[in-house]
C-alpha cells in the first residue's frame, strides 16, 4: 500500500475532490488512448472468449436445447419439453447421488484442510532444508495418478489387506471396507484426502508465510497464547485462502468420479454413487431414454453445484482483498 501511495503522490486520485466538469474534461482528453487500451484488452481476451464460446458456451446452450428432446442417434429426435427435467427431479437415485457427493465432500474437504493446516504450521517452524524435504514428501501424493491410488487402496482394503491386518492386531474381525454400505464411502474418502492434501498444504503454507511475523510478536507481547494467536491472527488472515480451498474443494469433491468408478463401481447398493458416477452410469445404458436422461441430469448437477458454491460464499462472508 505504501508503494502505491507514493506512486500517486503529486496528483490527486481520480475523482477525489474534483469538480464534475473537470472530471468530464479530463475524461474527454483521455478517451482516445483509453479506447486504444480497450481495443488492446479486447484483442488480448478475444482468443479465450472465442474458445470459451465455441467449446463451453455454445455446447452448454445446445445441451439445454437438446435436453428438451428424446434423443436417438437412429431416429428423428422427439420433442418432449421439460419432461426429462421432471424425470430427473423426481428420481430418488439422482437426489441420493447428490447426497452421496455432499457426504463425500464433507468427509474429504474439512479433514483435508485441517490436516493441511497442521502440516503447514509444522513445516513453517522447520529450517530451510528440512522444510524443502517435507514439502516434497507431502506433495508426492498429488502427482500420483488417481487410478494408481485407487488400485493401491483397493488392495489395502482387502480381507487380507494391511488395514484388516492392523485390525487383527486388536483381535478385530476383518471388515469388508469396500463392500459394506456403511464403510464404503469413508473408505474411498481416505485416498481422496491423501491425494488432495499435498497441494492444500502448499497453498496454506504460502498463505501462512505471508502473514507478517510482527503481528505474532506484538500479540505475544500483549500476552496472547497459541490459540488466541491462531483464532485472532492466523485464521482471519487465512480467510480468503480458506474460502478458496473450501469452494474449490467442495465443487471438486462433489464431482468425484474416478475413485468410486475404480474402487467400488458405485456400490455397494449405491453407497458410493456420486453424482458424476450416477450420470456416467446412466449414459452407459444403451437406450435413447438414457442419453437424454444423463444429459439433463448433468445440466441439473451444474445448477446444484452453482447453488452450493453460492451458499458457501454466503456462509463464509468473504472480505475483499484482506491485505496483510
Amino acid at each position: 500500500m505504501a508503494l502505491l501511495e507514493s506512486a500517486h503522490e503529486g496528483q490527486p486520485p481520480a475523482g477525489a475532490g474534483t469538480e464534475p466538469g473537470r472530471r468530464t474534461r479530463s475524461g474527454r482528453r483521455a478517451s482516445a488512448p483509453r479506447r486504444q487500451d480497450n481495443v488492446t484488452a479486447y484483442l488480448m481476451i478475444a482468443p479465450m472468449v472465442i474458445l470459451l464460446g465455441i467449446f463451453v458456451m455454445w455446447p452448454l446452450v445446445y445441451s439445454v436445447y437438446l435436453s428438451t428432446f428424446k434423443i436417438s442417434f437412429y431416429k428423428a429426435p422427439q420433442f418432449v419439453g421439460a419432461q426429462f427435467y421432471q424425470y430427473v427431479l423426481e428420481s430418488s437415485d439422482f437426489w441420493h447421488s447428490i447426497w452421496i457427493g455432499l457426504y463425500y465432500a464433507l468427509l474429504v474437504v474439512p479433514t483435508g484442510i485441517v490436516i493441511a493446516l497442521l502440516l503447514a504450521s509444522f513445516i513453517k517452524t522447520l529450517s530451510g532444508r528440512v522444510a524443502a524435504f517435507m514439502k516434497v514428501t507431502i506433495y508426492l501424493p498429488a502427482v500420483v495418478s488417481t487410478v494408481i491410488a485407487s488400485v493401491l487402496f483397493t488392495f489395502m482394503y482387502q480381507d487380507e489387506g494391511v488395514v484388516n491386518w492392523f485390525l487383527s492386531l486388536v483381535n478385530h474381525a476383518p471388515v469388508a471396507w469396500l463392500n459394506s454400505p456403511r464403510w464404503a464411502l469413508p473408505a474411498i474418502a481416505v485416498p481422496g484426502i491423501w491425494l488432495g492434501f499435498g497441494i492444500t498444504t502448499l497453498i496454506l503454507l504460502a498463505a501462512l508465510l505471508d502473514i507478517p511475523e510482527s503481528y505474532y510478536e506484538s500479540a505475544k507481547l500483549d500476552g496472547a497464547g497459541f490459540f488466541q494467536r491462531l483464532w485472532y491472527i492466523t485464521i482471519p488472515l487465512l480467510k480468503n485462502v480458506l474460502l478458496y480451498l473450501v469452494v474449490t474443494g467442495f465443487t471438486l469433491a462433489v464431482q468425484m468420479l474416478d475413485l468410486p468408478l475404480i474402487m467400488t463401481n458405485g456400490g455397494p447398493v449405491g453407497a458410493t454413487s456420486t453424482p458424476n458416477y450416477y450420470i456416467f452410469n446412466s449414459f452407459r445404458d444403451l437406450t435413447p431414454y438414457a442419453t437424454s436422461y444423463s444429459l439433463t441430469a448433468s445440466l441439473l448437477l451444474f445448477a446444484v453445484l452453482g447453488t452450493i458454491s453460492i451458499v458457501i460464499f454466503r456462509l463464509i462472508k468473504s472480505d475483499k482483498a484482506v491485505d496483510g
Partner: peptide
C-alpha cells in the same frame, strides 16, 4: 427388457445381502 430393470432387481438382492434393507 431394458437393463435398468435387471439392475434394479440386482440392487434389491445386493441390498438384502449386505443388510442395507
Amino acid at each position: 427388457y431394458p437393463w435398468d430393470i435387471a439392475l434394479d432387481f440386482g440392487t434389491a438382492i445386493e441390498g438384502a445381502m449386505k443388510g442395507n434393507l
